[in-house]
């Protein structure tokens, strides 16, 4: 029964931010959180909402950015914030957006753009919550952004391995010992590309890193203004879980990109774009740094032998030389050369 006018919800106007000096002064995520020294995920929260602005509601599924952020009857949030369950970031976004849509369509509340952002950690996004996020990205009637802040372990619980933990990393569920030097043998999930490839109606999927603040904020703005459900996967160095000096959080984010471990890309209306340093790497304008520069700064890789580092390097080299789309789609190039029988 919806008339098209009623069916489509209004979208916000959020112009791209042109340089750090144009970043909004207002903080909608301020002090009062109990995150670690040098917590990159706390920075992700701050930049995410700085980009989104005041007409936003945020839903946070269980994890560091829940427990450490709003912890113990205190809050750093200026905008409305609500907890949701570990596997529910997708459902929370859909339920909130659907509620607004129904109430606006029926004239029960003022019809206006309201940004709905739902975030999750790597368990909430790449593991337990994956099914609900997949469903959320199919509901094209609802405008919302699901942001996965990925610190590569269940850092809040006690730093346990997840589907996003890199190969070989030490966690409390994957310690190193005389019988098992490498305990965690799974390779990190390629979550953003998987969601982009699997949900062709989803208009925007991007990977980001808060070390590049302006790029980060502009991707959030794009996701909120394009319409429909969108997904952003953020790479968040974690001094606690990775065992490095908090001072290095920013540098490790850059190193993950410069070594090619974390490709920065966005998929907008079926068009894939590598951007920033990753684009430069793909175009050969920037030489990939050796992964050891990144690995050896972290206690979680301190047990790595030269062979382990070489193996890690080889896997990253494959990403950039063998993948159908370098750094994004892990299919062998043979697929292209496949010729049908005469």
């Amino acid at each position: 029964m919806d008339s098209p006018e009623l069916a489509t919800m209004p979208l916000p106007v959020l112009e791209p931010i042109k340089g750090v000096k144009k970043a909004p002064l207002e903080e909608y995520f301020t002090s009062g959180h109990r995150t670690c020294q040098g917590c990159e995920s706390a920075l992700v929260m701050k930049l995410m909402i700085k980009a989104a602005g005041p007409r936003t509601v945020v839903l946070g599924s269980t994890g560091c950015m829940y427990v450490a952020n709003t912890t113990y009857y205190s809050t750093p949030w200026v905008v409305p914030w609500m907890h949701t369950q570990l596997g529910s970031s997708g459902s929370a976004a859909v339920g909130t957006a659907a509620g607004y849509r129904a109430l606006m369509r029926k004239g029960k509340i003022k019809k206006e753009p309201i940004n709905v952002i739902s975030f999750c950690g790597d368990i909430g996004g790449a593991d337990m919550g994956l099914s609900a996020i997949s469903a959320a990205l199919q509901h094209v009637d609802y405008n919302h952004l699901i942001l996965l802040y990925d610190n590569e372990s269940a850092a809040n619980t006690d730093i346990q391995a997840t589907g996003s933990t890199p190969y070989g990393a030490v966690t409390t569920f994957s310690p190193t010992g005389p019988a098992k030097r490498i305990f965690h043998t799974r390779w990190k999930k390629n979550t953003a590309a998987m969601l982009a490839a699997g949900h062709p109606e989803c208009r925007y999927v991007a990977t980001v890193c808060a070390s590049y603040a302006v790029d980060f904020m502009n991707r959030v703005r794009r996701a909120l203004t394009i319409g429909g459900p969108t997904f952003i996967h953020s790479f968040d160095p974690c001094p606690k879980g990775w065992d490095y000096d908090p001072m290095l959080s920013h540098e490790l984010g850059e190193l993950a990109v410069l070594t090619g471990i974390w490709p920065l890309f966005e998929v907008e209306d079926h068009t894939l774009r590598l951007y920033g340093k990753s684009k430069a790497i793909a175009e050969g304008r920037q030489k990939r740094l050796p992964v050891r520069d990144y690995l050896l700064k972290q206690g979680r890789f301190a047990h790595f032998t030269e062979d382990d580092i070489d193996y890690f390097q080889a896997k990253i080299d494959d990403m950039w030389t063998q993948w159908l789309i370098p750094g994004v789609l892990p299919f062998a190039a043979e697929v292209l050369n496949d010729t049908p029988p005469a």
């Binding site: 529910s88 339920g95 509620g99 129904a102």
Partner: peptide
């Protein structure tokens, strides 16, 4: 056309109840 509601087929009962829960939180009858 006899009833006007957002009708969402969830991908699991967990999501079904979570979606309704969050709709209720914004003031929608769920």
């Amino acid at each position: 056309g006899e009833q006007d509601a957002e009708y969402i087929v969830a991908e699991s009962e967990h999501s079904q109840f979570e979606i309704a829960k969050h709709a209720s939180a914004v003031g929608a009858r769920a």
